[in-house]
Design a protein around this nucleic acid. Structure first.
Lengths: 254, 254
DNA sequence: GTTGACATTAACGCTACGTAAAGGTGTATA
DNA sequence: TATACACCTTTACGTAGCGTTAATGTCAAC
């Protein structure tokens, strides 16, 4: 049995464009080209197409399918397992996404019915969301999920007063850092005051304080561009200055 | 506080290219352009970018984000819910995919360890997989999941002999159809024999036979391009001929 | 000979940017 | 003041897997 593009396309339930594209990228070439330039496919091509579509349904890329089909020695089992891992990653991502969308919907629905009442809860949630969005991966990698979840929970438990104190303290850290930076001395009184304010600020989110963790965080402020940007808005180099001050403050500067 | 592209990009943890792209598609325009043509962003733009990135993390397309942010009257809640539905669809798809990949891996692993023993099981599985891939949606829509699962199970329960009989019978249907088609008479003896063979062939997968279901299947052979292609490989128009023969055979031709 | 259903190649379009290339701007330093 | 260097600009191609015209050729039937 021989097939033209359209016949084969109908048989397989795909478009003729797809067949031409598969020819173009060399994943499925017709058995022959007739005198008019038409593509003619035979049984072997039908079988190969079946296989292509089978892997395609599994979400394997055409490039990978080409590898799998072209070399019989190719370890298709390994390829499939790697593919499964990627799919599982995507599933985890997707589940997270859905959870977030649900959270957002719930939040919005709440906001709509009580738009004038408890906006504050939204602010705290937003703070957490923003943090997660910007720093989530690094922080969770560094401190583990449990610590981060605890910190987020701690924020949600803050009263409005406490929350505003925390915000003020955050601003104080920046102000103190600016003053201290002008002195140029991370061991000086002003810089040590900034480091102390920073420790106090941490208390709002950290479950327990340790000098090592404090110093580690300071180092991260320097290593990660986005953290650095936050403190460098004071002055370029301020993040590094703060780190030095905290290293001295915590006695970790050896 | 004012930001150039790079400053804002660092703050937000994105690339400068992304900011220029957002400017280009009009989703985030800078507050102003300075005398040198530099983009300058202000606080309002930072806030807007936060929102953009928030929705982006939820997997919302930039076009939709634009709609959401540009018109405050836009029903963002509804948009989010629709978005969630799409995500849930993707999740179902993905779960199916993963299940299939797992099945394939298990099958391949089985094949590898007993490559010379029970290849036959693989053939039956392949038959089912191919059917599912090609006709699954239509058949399940028409007959329901339960009937299809039962049919698949029935195939898996076939002995090798039975399976080969079924294959032979399938070929007989095609051969009989070809002969009958030449007569041009769907009520003729040959055509009725083809219809009868077709009924016998169905017995291998159908749990119970009914004339109405048989006739309905025949109609689907005509209505769906891919089914039609299967029988039209005998002769163009063969699917329609078979349908007519079956309608007469089942007495549903009123 | 004309219609209509097929076939062909070439080319742009879609998403959300990454990645040069070619050139202007701003500032610190030799 | 010349230069180095980090920053900025626009333009434009590349990505995956096709969908979608557009312009044109082929084949069978009426």
């Amino acid at each position: 049995m021989e097939y033209t593009v359209q016949k084969l396309a109908q048989l397989a339930g795909i478009s003729t464009r797809t067949l031409r594209y598969y020819d173009e990228i060399g994943i499925l070439k017709p058995a022959r080209i007739n005198s008019s330039g038409y593509r003619i496919y035979g049984q072997a091509e039908v079988d190969r197409l079946q296989q292509i579509l089978f892997y395609r349904e599994l979400g394997v890329s055409l490039a990978s399918i080409k590898d799998i089909l072209n070399s019989p020695s190719f370890d298709s089992l390994k390829a499939l397992k790697e593919h499964r891992d990627r799919l599982l990653d995507r599933k985890r991502q997707l589940d997270l996404l859905i959870a977030n969308v649900n959270k957002t919907i719930a939040l919005k629905e709440g906001r709509i019915t009580m738009t004038d009442q408890e906006k504050f809860a939204g602010f705290k949630q937003k703070l957490i969301d923003d943090n997660e969005r910007k720093y989530g991966k690094e922080i969770r990698a560094k401190y583990g999920d449990e610590a981060v979840n605890k910190a987020n929970q701690k924020i949600l438990n803050l009263t409005e007063e406490q929350y505003q104190e925390m915000q003020k303290l955050g601003a104080s850290v920046l102000a103190a850092l600016k003053e201290a930076y002008a002195t140029g001395d991370p061991a000086g009184e002003l810089a040590q005051k900034a480091a102390d304010l920073h420790r106090q600020w941490l208390a709002y989110t950290w479950d327990s304080y340790s000098k090592a963790a404090h110093a580690g965080l300071a180092q991260m402020y320097v290593d990660d561009a986005r953290f650095r940007a936050y403190y460098d808005q004071v002055q370029p180099g301020a993040a590094e200055f703060l780190r030095d001050a905290i290293l001295i403050y915590t006695g970790m500067n050896k």
